[in-house]
Design a protein around this nucleic acid. Structure first.
Lengths: 388, 388
DNA sequence: CTGAAAGCGCTAACAG
DNA sequence: CTGTTAGCGCTTTCAG
């Protein structure tokens, strides 16, 4: 591709005139506009301002332009302002891809979508992605999102890193034995996760302290006078699920309450499954029947509330119910649901900070971060708050 | 940076041996490993397989490697397989950034986040982004997400396109007089939108046919025998809001029902506002009181349902209620909510198809696409479906 | 302080 | 069919 300078020379006009002619400004006489257009066509040139054009207009070398733009070498005030003037007048923006190739750094962070085909994915994850984008931009990076298949999740990660599409990754929705994490550790790819995996794996992550969270809400219930408190958790074996159960025991132990084994229930994370479990709890003999039900997710709590409503139980008065996540719908249930809010913005910011430390190869001293969730009290545990 | 070949030469070993030594394979004798490492260090080389290395190993020129990899020129079967062999054995993946610079195409599509600081954003937009990523990848592109400020939304778009970060954009959450759309049209940047703007602006978009959707659900209610049907819409002046109201009139007119003016209510899109309006509707004289309430959003419908539940009205039996969007929480309300499902996957796929047409400069004949939503009948209008 | 020149990794004329 | 070579737009030694 020819340069603007050559076009200008061929049309026998100043560089700037050529620029204005091609950029369609009205300020150039029709005749000149035409001849410049001719010249451009002849050279197969299409307007595209590069560092060369700026250099030509400012009468300096391209190196000098680069120095000015990046402050990477001392430049005299006079030349500097000539360059900046040229930049302004040509409306020049450096092509980032030149820089990328040269530096072999894309300043792009990959994020693999959690699969939301349909139905109810964790809504706080969507806010997470927003704050992640925000955080990443504050470092001059951007987020590249991609969809990875369930079967071979590592493939997409491998592809992106090996082709130099991205510099590193942020992961969410992590699992025990997460193959993506295993791969990234082994391949020494920079990444940071929102969520834990195996305790024995050493990698940077942030996570919500579910144990502390459930303890918080349990303490809250105890302080309201509840003594018979049930917990509906997930099946044993998930890191975060088991931690949440542990928080329940923590709080009860601290209050010297011995939990009856029938109070601890485990089932899958769905509204209907939780409702079924609630039915069982209601069927316990009166002396054992819980006055409060702590759920490890909002989805479950909503199932429980719906069920109790149908049975004519006054949620908040007769039986307290709590959830986890602070899903937007918590405010729309009847009554509104007490829950634990994940500090999503914090989590995103910290995850990104961890990743940046990895990218800059400045090992963060603290690569594992737990953040306590915030207890949000609503009418489902405290009827005083029914109509605030 | 030196090449692998030079390192190998310096260490006086075959290219492949040098590769294996540096990639940490155990198959190379300790002594050779050391000498290769020395050589690499001396040359300041860090392992990074490029097209040159493949060419060297296959004993061809880099052009030939490129031809094989892109099928861009005829290559004899013998050389081709030599090249492919070298590619495989060196585990070579082309650096996409070389290609990007050369083609001046990033194969990246920008998507500016709808601002979800907190609270209840449209959950179907989150699924939209997922399907968008999926669709875009089927064309060999990726999605770059970014957060744009409310005040000057065009800035981010301008920056990304002018620095050649992305080839084009997908927009969602469009408005009347949307400045982003205005800018992109004027700057002739390729894009496609999910949602409409001004009727007089010609740009590619897909949108849900809200008019048809509300007509569908109104017809459904009429077929159930309802004659007094109210509509809770948004304040006048929004494209999609007004279209939905129109659908209501369409269906009533088709059934020769003359709507009473008191049945049409307009208020902001929130659960509490809708609940207040529902209260007004209940207060109408018995002869005018609606037996069905159509809402233009699920959020509003949920507010209405909650209110009716509190009043002891049997939703679905006494009064039918419907929403719009098929928010995941529709299945969790009591009773479950009849609504209109946006065909998100379709919308995403078609929006991407439109964008691709723009990018390839193959003007799509049909640049404005409306997709009818799907009526999802649940117990809030049809109690038969209470427990399916 | 400024400029010439050598690449970054890849593609694609153009010759042979 | 294959190789030579000239870039894509930028950064960065290295000399002057």
């Amino acid at each position: 591709m020819a340069t603007l300078k050559q076009v200008a020379a061929l049309a026998n006009v100043p560089l700037l005139t050529a620029y204005h002619a091609l950029s369609g400004s009205e300020s150039v006489p029709q005749a000149q506009r035409e001849s410049v257009r001719k010249a451009a066509e002849q050279l197969g040139y299409t307007l595209n301002i590069t560092i060369k054009d700026v250099a030509a207009l400012a009468n300096v070398s391209i190196a000098t332009v680069s120095y000015v733009l990046n402050d990477s070498a001392p430049v005299s005030a006079a030349t500097r302002s000539r360059v900046l003037e040229a930049v302004a007048v040509l409306n020049y923006r450096p092509n980032i891809n030149g820089r990328i190739l040269q530096a072999n750094k894309t300043r792009l962070v990959g994020y693999g979508w959690h699969n939301i085909k349909r139905g109810h994915a964790a809504p706080f994850l969507d806010r997470f992605t927003y704050w992640m984008a925000q955080a990443v931009e504050s470092y001059g990076y951007h987020v590249l999102t991609f969809a990875h298949s369930e079967e071979s999740p590592t493939e997409a990660y491998q592809e992106l890193i090996q082709t130099n599409r991205v510099d590193g990754f942020i992961l969410a929705h992590t699992n025990h034995n997460d193959p993506r994490i295993r791969y990234l550790i082994d391949a020494r790819v920079p990444f940071a996760a929102f969520g834990r995996a195996n305790d024995s794996w050493d990698f940077p992550y942030v996570d919500v302290d579910g144990r502390r969270g459930i303890a918080l809400v349990t303490e809250h219930l105890i302080s309201l006078g509840h003594k018979q408190i049930a917990l509906i958790g997930w099946p044993e074996g998930s890191l975060s699920g088991d931690a949440r159960v542990q928080g329940y025991f923590d709080a009860l132990a601290a209050a010297a309450i011995t939990p009856h084994p029938d109070w601890l229930r485990r089932t899958e994370n769905s509204a209907t499954a939780a409702a079924a479990v609630a039915a069982e709890l209601l069927d316990l003999p009166a002396s054992l029947r819980p006055t409060a039900i702590v759920c490890v997710s909002d989805l479950m709590a909503i199932g429980v509330i719906n069920y109790l409503n149908r049975c004519g139980v006054q949620v908040g008065y007769d039986i307290a119910v709590s959830g986890f996540d602070d899903d937007p719908m918590c405010e729309l249930t009847h009554p509104p649901l007490t829950t634990l809010r994940q500090p999503v913005e914090d989590l995103a910011t910290q995850a990104v900070a961890l990743l940046m430390a990895e990218l800059e190869r400045m090992p963060s001293p603290q690569r594992q971060i737990l953040v306590a969730p915030q207890l949000i009290v609503r009418a489902s545990t405290d009827p005083q708050r029914q109509f605030p």
